[in-house]
Computed example of a mutant assay.
Amino acid sequence: MKDTAQGITAVPGRLAGLRPLVGELMDLKRVRTPDQPEGLAAHGFRRAWAALVSGVHPDTLALREAALALTGIRLGGIDLDVLSRAGMPHERAVKVLRRGLDAAAEPLDRELRERLHTALAGLPVPGQIQPPAFVERLVRQPRAGPTRANTPRVVLLPAESHADHCYVVAVASVLVSPLFGADPAIPFVAALSHHFFNVVLPDAGDYGDRLLGEDAAPLMARVTEDVLATLPEGLAALVREARKILPHTDSPEARAFHAADAMDRVLEMDAHARAAGFTLRQAMVDLDLIHEGPMQAYENAVLAAAGLIH
């Protein structure tokens, strides 16, 4: 098939097959625990940057974080740290995480599934390495959502943060990389860093950025360089190299990144639309809210007596 759309024409069916799984990554932005009140995506963003500054190689980290994100889809906040604090031995905890991974990873490329499975074997014992200071700025910096000239802003709550967006795009980049023949580490690092300018600049949306006019590009570049200067020299060089894919789509890695970025932005809106349209029937029938168990018959009788089911 002729490549008429920067490499996407060869993979539309396979990309559509990953859409539900990428959509489920959105949930990590809103799944919260007492340990992670900003959500599991923000937690993953912190964890990824802490690992990078501690010297973990991006090839290792990209696969590890994708594996952990997929376990989070199925296990929520039950992660290695929680299982360790609950007294579960490390090896058994990793087996639990693998079950979570296997439950989520069926739509993925088989070779990628195997690499993700292996990545969980190398999980370190939870430690206390701190991420760079700029990370918390992105955790607290909300995204504007879609904006357009002469149109009121649509405020969607709870608002995702730039940490949420960057982490989900990073993980999604890994998941779609086999479709483009891409090295997953490059789009992963590019995604983690692609909103560095929002460490300082609040998000005014696309239209707000346009109002900055000719000042926008140099302002964003200056803030980005300031953030890069806070990283260890070797890591800063690596991040700069990965970010070279951001302005184009003429390499497999750039295509993987921009595919993940576009899907995240639209699926985020889809998540709000689905939440707004959620019905009781979906809870009762599609999601089996009163699930099978010893109390099911009694609970259904109570609901029938209360007029909540028929």
Rank of each mutant, 00 (worst) to 15 (best):
R98G: 01
R85P: 04
K2A: 11
D288H: 03
R113Y: 02
L68G: 04
T60L: 11
G87D: 08
D206I: 15
M220P: 10
R143L: 13
R281W: 07
G23Q: 03
V168G: 04
G213A: 07
L211S: 07
S251G: 06
G181T: 07
A50H: 12
H258K: 00
L289P: 00
E299P: 01
V94A: 04
A133W: 05
L61W: 09
L157Q: 10
L303K: 10
L120H: 00
Y298S: 06
A42Y: 06
D102T: 09
G87H: 08
D81F: 14
A242Y: 07
P131M: 04
L280A: 15
A62G: 09
H57D: 13
E111W: 00
A236R: 02
M269T: 12
L211T: 05
Y207T: 15
G77W: 07
L201F: 06
D203H: 06
A254M: 01
L18G: 02
A69N: 00
Q282P: 02
P152C: 06
F188H: 15
A66F: 02
L123E: 02
A283H: 04
E65K: 03
E91Q: 13
L219H: 09
L157D: 11
V154T: 15
G100W: 13
A51D: 10
L108A: 08
A62K: 05
L201A: 05
P142H: 10
T60W: 09
I309S: 04
L175T: 05
V239Q: 07
L228H: 15
L21S: 05
F180K: 01
R210S: 15
E292N: 14
L156Q: 12
E65Q: 11
G76A: 13
A144F: 02
Q130G: 14
K2F: 09
G293D: 08
L156T: 08
A260C: 02
H195C: 06
D209N: 15
Q141E: 10
P187F: 07
T71L: 08
L108Q: 08
G208N: 11
A16Y: 12
S84A: 10
P152I: 03
L123V: 01
S54Y: 03
R99Q: 14
A190I: 01
E214I: 00
A276D: 12
Q141H: 02
P89N: 13
V82R: 06
R64T: 11
A254H: 04
R30Y: 15
R46P: 13
E24H: 12
L108W: 05
A242V: 08
E106H: 05
A190M: 01
L83N: 10
A103P: 08
V239S: 05
L18W: 08
L70T: 03
H195I: 00
H43D: 13
A190S: 07
L246C: 00
L201V: 06
R222L: 12
L157F: 10
L267Y: 14
K29R: 14
D264A: 15
V168Y: 03
L212F: 12
